[in-house]
Computed example of a mutant assay.
Amino acid sequence: MDKTTNGFVNSFIEYLQIEKNYSENTINSYKKDIEQFLLFLHAEGIVVTDVEYFNARLYVTELYHQKISRASAARKISCIRSFYKFLLREQIVKENPFALVIQPKKEKKLPSFFYEEELELLFDVCREPTPLKIRDLALLELLYATGIRVSECANIQLSDIDFDIGTILVKGKGRKERYVPFGSFAHEAIQKYIEEGRSVLMQEKEKHTFLFVNSRGGPLTTRGIRYILSKIIESAALTGKIHPHMLRHTFATHMLNNGADMRTVQELLGHDNLSSTQVYTHITKEHLRKTYMNHHPRA
């Protein structure tokens, strides 16, 4: 990458950090997508400021040849479009060559979720009276009670929890904050963890205020939480394709199945757009259809 192009990219990254307030993970994703695009331009012998619509279409064709998912292709195209929108704003280019490029439609996959019987199996795995199992149960109860992301869970501080009114302050994507309530099961599990689990794990560690800690008393990372959840799922001997994010899907699905309105679930999940939440209506409709087919005499 030449110095001029490198300067354009660095300016764009600063724009994402300062003006857009994007998270570190999102920014790293943008960097990788731009680097891949620049490698394509280098192979074609084109500089960033000379890209035209024809070149943009050629890049989209190259993405198809790589046989990546539609969602990944759409993300990469969106990233480069944003990059050129920034260059256009800064008057570095005269037009956005990706402005008219049509993104591939994402596959409509219904989010997977746990049935209540499956959840009980997960909770049962964590019912041993050891500090780590007490932590794991609190982790599981909180994720199911709130529907927060694993990354949001890793950043929870002790001061973010209000036991009196049963709410937790969650720092979401783009550093946006929201208050999410939690119920009696999570309340009991978290309080027991703080008193009997966290305090034991933290004995020989420099004090910090993160809620969840690892076996050495240090802050539990996003990767660490995913590992713990994967082990819980594995120990419960559940079959099929199961991943930690299913707890978030389960929260939303169970809320809607039990009569919660879409706007409330949207706010609790921290979705910017209602369309992101509406995917769960397909699950609840499928649930209704299966219930009907199983119980109606003339189904």
Rank of each mutant, 00 (worst) to 15 (best):
E267C: 03
E234W: 11
D272W: 04
R198G: 06
F113S: 01
V265A: 03
L122N: 02
A186I: 00
A56I: 03
F251T: 03
Q91L: 10
A99F: 14
E19S: 14
M1I: 13
A145G: 08
Y15F: 15
I13N: 07
K207D: 15
K31I: 07
N258M: 04
K20A: 06
S151G: 00
L119I: 06
Y30I: 09
K31V: 04
F210M: 13
A186R: 00
E152G: 05
R127L: 11
A299T: 08
I77F: 06
Y22T: 03
G270K: 01
K290H: 14
I148D: 01
N28D: 14
E24R: 15
C126M: 02
Y179S: 07
E62T: 06
T284Q: 04
V279E: 06
Q191H: 08
A73D: 01
V180D: 02
V279S: 08
L110T: 08
Q66Y: 13
N96V: 04
V51N: 00
N273W: 09
L63E: 08
V51M: 02
S151M: 04
L87K: 00
G270N: 02
F86R: 00
A74C: 12
S29E: 07
L201Q: 03
K94L: 10
E19I: 11
D33M: 08
K171W: 05
A186G: 02
F54S: 14
Q91I: 06
F163Q: 07
N96I: 02
N294P: 13
A99N: 10
E267Q: 10
M202L: 15
I242L: 05
K173R: 12
M255T: 05
H254S: 00
D50G: 09
T167M: 10
K94W: 07
I148W: 02
T221M: 08
N96W: 01
E195P: 05
K171Y: 06
V47N: 12
A252F: 00
N25Q: 13
L16F: 10
Q191G: 08
Q66I: 09
G259V: 10
I161Q: 07
A145R: 03
D124H: 12
L41C: 14
C153S: 02
E44C: 13
K105T: 12
E95Q: 14
L201V: 10
A71H: 07
N214S: 08
R81D: 12
R81C: 13
A43N: 15
P104I: 04
L88N: 01
K32E: 11
F54M: 13
S151T: 05
H65T: 13
A260L: 08
H296Q: 10
L220N: 04
R263C: 12
A56Y: 01
L132F: 13
R226V: 06
L211I: 11
F86L: 07
E90F: 07
T239A: 15
V9R: 05
V48A: 04
M1E: 10
V93Q: 03
G166Y: 02
N257I: 03
F12C: 02
P181Y: 09
N10E: 13
F54V: 15
N273K: 14
L268P: 00
I18T: 15
E116L: 11
H287M: 15
L41R: 04
I233M: 11
R57V: 11
N273C: 15
K173H: 06
N258S: 05
I232H: 00
S11W: 06
H295C: 07
T291E: 15
R216P: 01
D272F: 09
P244R: 04
L269D: 00
N25G: 05
F40Q: 01
L143R: 01
T222N: 13
